[in-house]
Design a protein around this nucleic acid. Structure first.
Lengths: 221, 221
DNA sequence: ATGCGCTCATGGATCATAGATAGTCCGGCG
DNA sequence: CGCCGGACTATCTATGATCCATGAGCGCAT
């Protein structure tokens, strides 16, 4: 899918998002348009377009005539993102629940297992996001889903910044609880667990990450 | 503030957002880059950058090599926006409440009065948005506030599309109820009223608008 | 310390290319 | 003989490259 996104600007955009989210481009890092243009064998025009999209998604910010930098994040923003996710994902699940099929629940189950068997953060993040996406998709609210996707991206940045190498997968009781509640048709309960699950991540992650975030925050040319 | 936003792209962006939100650019209308460039005495480069930002904010969408169009909206999206606003504004208010001062409440009161005395939709929308913005600002969550702003923009589009000329201001009991609850420190109650207030707008507006939305949806040029 | 000038990156204009659309012409078929 | 379908071409528009100017940052000299 990302092989030929048709337009150069999109290709550059996805490449850069990948680097920012994965942490290869650290917070505060400066994005120099002609450096990047040169790297992609392009001119600065599509690069600038990519910048504008990164900006809108909150991954970068630009100061006029001063250039573009990767946005830095602090613990406050992690909490912010977590709480927004809690609100919006609960809303989405409430609307999605009536349309969730048994097949979908089984697939979600598999995603959870995949997450538990993950060997590194990357795999876990992928599986975890798939789980959430899968359950919420049937709500049929594209704008809401897009907003949630952006928040997941931000979450992923924290994730990768905090656990770079050391990592152990643990069984995710919350995910199973959500699935169980949905099977019984207890929509409110499922939403509650989901909201708490996501919000908790915000509070829990804070302590763990604060140290390494600081490390990550030193500006990198 | 919009007088000299420094960069051309930003100026074009704000101009276009204004036109789209106000309805001067109707849903489905095609945005031709060199037409617009010519109009602003610019080249297509900053115009394209403005497009990307509009796109990210959900005001326009682009198909590769086919151009950019103003997004069309239907009743479903109105409900979606309303529910997202309900969730997020409640969240914001919950965090803002502890930092809301008496002075701020008085200013909010004045905004409500201004809305009630509004002579046209434009004035009302401005005052109404000011009221909401004002109360939520102290939450100190920039990402959340930005998201809410975008949703307000979308709401405003519906507003202007539905009530183009005929309009009568009515006293806003919900606003006063929110202020009263906040004065008494009943945060939960305030959030409830706010959520219901915004969500109700979604359901109520639907019937009223469906007719004229269709009118607005005929593609222009 | 402060002001001047040098350098470099950003923002923008102009010029080239490629993709899409529409109009037309030709051939086949009724 | 006329009508329809499909392919080809021509034009128009979006995308991208190259080129230019203005503003920012920095060092040097006073």
């Amino acid at each position: 899918m990302s092989a030929s996104d048709e337009t150069l600007a999109k290709k550059i955009e996805t490449a850069l998002t990948g680097r920012i989210v994965s942490g290869r481009l650290q917070p505060g890092a400066r994005l120099r348009q002609d450096r990047i243009a040169e790297e992609f064998g392009a001119s600065h025009v599509p690069v600038r377009e990519a910048f504008r999209r990164l900006e809108a998604r909150g991954l970068a910010f630009s100061e006029p005539h001063k250039g573009v930098r990767v946005t830095s994040f602090d613990v406050a923003e992690l909490r912010e993102v977590a709480e927004m996710r809690a609100s919006l994902e609960a809303l989405a699940l409430r609307h999605a629940a009536p349309h969730v099929t048994a097949t979908l629940l089984r697939e979600a189950e598999r995603a959870t297992e995949r997450a538990e068997k993950a060997r590194d953060v990357g795999e876990w993040e992928e599986a975890n996001r798939a789980f959430h996406r899968m359950l919420l998709e049937p709500c049929g609210m594209p704008r809401l889903l897009a907003a949630i996707d952006d928040l997941h991206l931000a979450s992923a940045r924290f994730l990768f910044a905090a656990w770079r190498s050391d990592w152990e997968a643990r069984t995710d009781h919350d995910h199973r609880a959500i699935l169980a509640a949905l099977r019984r048709g207890q929509v409110d309960a499922a939403c509650d667990v989901l909201a708490r699950h996501v919000g908790w991540m915000g509070r829990r992650g804070g302590a763990r990450q604060s140290v390494e975030i600081e490390v990550a925050e030193k500006l990198l040319d």
